[in-house]
Design a binder for these strands. Structure first.
Length: 574
RNA sequence: CGGCGAUUAGCGCAGUUUGGUAGCGCACUUGGUUUGGGUCCAAGGGGUCGCAGGUUCAAAUCCUGCAUCGCCGACCA
C-alpha cells in the first residue's frame, strides 16, 4: 500500500472525549472514528488489525475442530420468547419491529438461533459432538458505552457453540476450546490469564474468562501468589478464618451516635475502627408461596464489601439481589439505614464468615442515632446463618489452599461456558440416542471479543510515540520511509524495487511516498505502530545500505541493499 | 436511570461575566522556502456559534424548553 493512495488519517491532537490510551491512540492513528455513542467506523488501518485478529481466531477454531458458519444479526422474537430471554434480557437487547409490526431483536449473542438451527438439522447422536462458530457483529444497547471499541454498542465477536450427548463429552470439548483460546492469546502476543468466572446471564455451570492484564481493565481478578489459581473477584471464595472467635469480654452497651450514618463517620466522630464494627445491609428475601418478599439482613465486617453475586445465590435472598427501600426498612425495623445492627433484629440474618469470628464489636442499635458496642454472637444475637457473602481482599488466603490472594485488573476478552441443557431444554433440542430415544443435547458456548482484543492489545503495547503492535496483528509489517525522495534520482527506483520485492515475499508493506518531511513520516509510522521501518536515504545508499528500525526495541540494523529483501523476509516471518 | 459538565470550522480551544459585524492554533488549498525526527514566510477556503422558542433596536453572549455528547454514580447504611 502507498500512503498517497491510502487514508492514513492520523491526528496530532487527542480528541477530548477519549479517556483511555487505547481509545486515544485508535483515534490518533486513524483506526476508528465515532459515528454515535458506542458506534464506530473502522478505517482501513483499524480494519487491517481487526482482520488479522479475526484470522488468527479463525485458524485456531478450525484447528480445534470447529466449523464456521454465519447467522443473521436480526432475529425473530419468537426464538427469544422460547428461551425465556425476551423478558429476561432487559433493555440491553435492542428490539425492533419490521414493516408488518412483527417484533425482532438485534442479536447480542446467538444461542437461540444456533439451537434452533441444530434442533432442525441434527437428528442423530452419530452427528455429535458438533462445534459451530461464526465471526459476526453483535449488538448490545449498553447502559453506558465507553472507552471506544472496548465497550461499544456494536462489536465484532467470535462465538462458538458445541452440542453433545453427555456432560463428559462436553467437558472434553470445553478443554479443547480452553486450549485453543490459550493458543489464540499466545499467538496474539498478549499477556493474558484464564480465570474462574461466574456464568452471569448466559447461564450454565462451569465457566472461565480470559483476561488481558491492564491497569485500565474494568474487572478485578484475584490471583494466588503461590499457584496458578486465578478467579474473577466476584467468584473468588473468601475462606472462613482459621482463628477461632475470641471470648466475649465486654457487656452490651448502647451509646449515642447522632453524627454517624456510615462506617467512615463512625470512625471519624467516635473512633470506631472499621474492622471493629459490622455493616448491616437490608435486602429483599426470596418470595414465599404467596409471592411476598420479606426482608433479610446481610452482615459483613465494617471494612469489607458485600459480594452481590454470592449473596443472591443464598436461598433466603431474592435473586437478582435488591437493596431494601428506606421506607420498607423503617416500617420493619423502626430505624433508618445508618443505625442498623443485628441485635434484636426480627428477620433472617446472614453473617459473613469473617464477621462471624468477631467479638465485642460495634453495630447500629436499630434506633436512629444510636449504636451498640460490646456485641457478641450467640449471647446477644441468637438466630443467624453463616455464609461467604463478601468480596475477597488482597492478602486473604487463596481458596486453592496455597498462598495468599493478590488483585490485578484485567480486560475480559474471552469467556467460555459449559451451558448444560439450559437452551436445549427450553427449545426442545434433542437427537435420537443409540437406543432410539429422544435425548436433549447438552451445550457449551465460547466467545471472544474480537474488536475488544484490538483495544486491549493497544492498552498493553504503547509508548509515548504511539502503538507498538505485536507483529502478528500489526496493520502493516513494515513501512518504507524514503528520505526526500522527490529530490533524488536513485531513491524512487530503489524504494519501488524494495516495495515490489517485499510484497512478493508476502509482507504487508506501507510505502510512505508522500512529499513530506522525514520527521512527519517517522512520527506517523510510529503512531500507527508499524513494527519495522525501512529508511532509504542518500547517506547510506553511498555504501549500498538501507536502515531497518525496530519499533519495539528501537534497534537499528544496516542491511546490504542486495540482500535486504531476504533478510527482512526472514525477520518478519521468523 | 440519578447527579454533574460540555456543545463555537475536520481536530484542540478562546470569546459568554459586562449583548454591539465570529476568533486563535493545528489540519486543508496556492506560491515560495526548508529537507535523516512534526521547517519557516505569505496569501486563501471553510461557521445558520447543538436545536426550538422568548427578551431586545441588536443575542454565541440573557431567559425557557429540548437534543446530543462526556464524566461520576447506580449495595457499601
Amino acid at each position: 500500500m502507498r500512503t498517497s493512495q491510502y487514508i492514513l488519517a492520523t491526528l496530532k491532537e487527542t480528541p477530548s472525549d477519549a479517556e483511555i490510551v487505547s481509545h486515544q491512540l485508535m483515534l490518533r492513528a486513524g483506526m476508528i472514528r465515532r459515528v454515535a455513542s458506542g458506534l464506530y467506523t473502522w478505517l482501513p488501518s483499524g480494519l487491517r488489525v481487526l482482520k488479522k485478529v479475526e484470522n488468527i481466531v479463525r485458524e485456531e477454531m478450525d484447528k480445534a475442530g470447529a466449523i464456521e458458519m454465519l447467522m443473521p444479526i436480526i432475529q425473530p422474537a419468537d426464538l427469544w420468547e422460547e428461551s425465556g430471554r425476551w423478558e429476561q434480557f432487559g433493555p440491553e437487547l435492542l428490539r425492533i419491529n419490521d414493516r408488518h409490526n412483527r417484533p425482532f431483536a438485534l442479536g447480542p449473542t446467538h444461542e437461540e438461533v444456533i439451537t434452533d438451527f441444530v434442533r432442525k438439522e441434527v437428528s442423530s447422536y452419530k452427528q455429535l459432538p458438533l462445534t459451530l462458530y461464526q465471526v459476526q457483529t453483535k449488538v448490545r444497547d449498553e447502559v453506558r458505552p465507553r472507552f471506544g471499541v472496548m465497550r461499544a454498542r456494536e462489536f465484532t465477536m467470535k462465538d462458538a457453540y458445541s452440542f453433545h450427548l453427555s456432560d463428559e463429552c462436553l467437558e472434553k470439548t470445553y478443554q479443547v476450546m480452553h486450549t485453543a483460546y490459550c493458543n489464540i492469546f499466545e499467538r496474539l502476543g498478549l499477556d493474558y490469564r484464564p480465570v474462574i468466572a461466574d456464568t452471569g446471564s448466559i447461564g450454565g455451570s462451569v465457566s472461565h474468562e480470559f483476561h488481558v492484564l491492564a491497569e485500565s481493565g474494568e474487572d478485578a481478578i484475584a490471583f494466588s501468589d503461590a499457584s496458578d489459581y486465578a478467579a474473577n473477584i466476584e467468584k473468588a471464595e473468601a475462606l472462613a478464618p482459621t482463628d477461632a472467635r475470641p471470648a466475649a469480654t465486654k457487656e452490651l452497651k448502647a451509646f449515642p451516635t447522632p453524627d454517624a450514618k456510615t462506617i467512615a463517620e463512625l470512625k471519624e466522630h467516635y473512633g470506631v475502627k472499621p474492622h471493629r464494627g459490622v455493616k448491616t445491609l437490608i435486602v429483599y428475601g426470596a418470595p414465599d408461596e404467596n409471592e411476598q418478599r420479606g426482608l433479610v439482613a446481610l452482615i459483613v465486617r465494617g471494612d469489607h464489601e458485600l459480594n452481590e453475586l454470592k449473596a443472591e445465590k443464598h436461598p433466603l435472598v431474592d435473586s437478582p439481589l435488591e437493596m431494601a427501600k428506606e421506607e420498607d426498612i423503617v416500617a420493619a425495623i423502626g430505624a433508618k439505614p445508618g443505625s442498623l445492627g443485628p441485635v434484636g433484629l426480627n428477620m433472617p440474618i446472614i453473617v459473613d464468615r469473617t464477621a462471624n469470628v468477631m467479638a465485642d464489636f460495634v453495630a447500629g442499635a436499630n434506633k436512629d442515632g444510636e449504636h451498640f458496642s460490646g456485641i457478641n454472637w450467640d449471647r446477644d444475637v441468637e438466630n443467624y446463618e453463616v455464609a461467604d457473602i463478601r468480596n475477597i481482599v488482597e492478602g486473604d488466603p487463596s481458596p486453592c489452599g496455597q498462598g495468599t490472594l493478590q488483585i490485578k485488573r484485567g480486560i475480559e476478552v474471552g469467556h467460555i461456558f459449559q451451558l448444560g441443557t439450559k437452551y436445549s431444554e427450553a427449545m426442545k433440542a434433542g437427537v435420537l440416542s443409540e437406543s432410539g430415544k429422544n435425548q436433549i443435547m447438552t451445550m457449551g458456548c465460547y466467545g471472544i471479543g474480537v474488536s475488544r482484543i484490538v483495544a486491549a492489545a493497544i492498552e498493553q503495547n504503547n509508548d509515548e510515540y504511539g502503538i507498538k503492535w505485536p507483529q502478528p496483528i500489526a496493520p502493516f509489517d513494515l513501512a518504507i520511509v524514503p528520505m526526500n525522495m522527490h529530490k533524488s534520482h536513485r531513491i524512487p527506483d530503489i524504494a519501488n524495487n524494495l516495495y515490489d520485492g517485499l510484497k512478493a515475499q508476502g509482507i504487508d508493506v506501507l510505502f510512505d511516498d508522500r512529499k513530506e518531511r522525514p520527521g512527519v513520516m517517522f512520527n506517523d509510522m510510529e503512531l500507527l505502530g508499524v513494527p519495522y521501518t525501512l529508511v532509504i536515504g542518500e547517506r547510506n545508499l553511498d555504501e549500498n545500505k538501507v536502515e531497518l528500525k525496530n519499533r519495539r526495541t528501537g534497534e537499528k540494523l544496516m542491511l546490504d541493499l542486495d540482500t535486504a529483501i531476504a533478510e527482512i523476509a526472514a525477520l518478519v516471518k521468523g
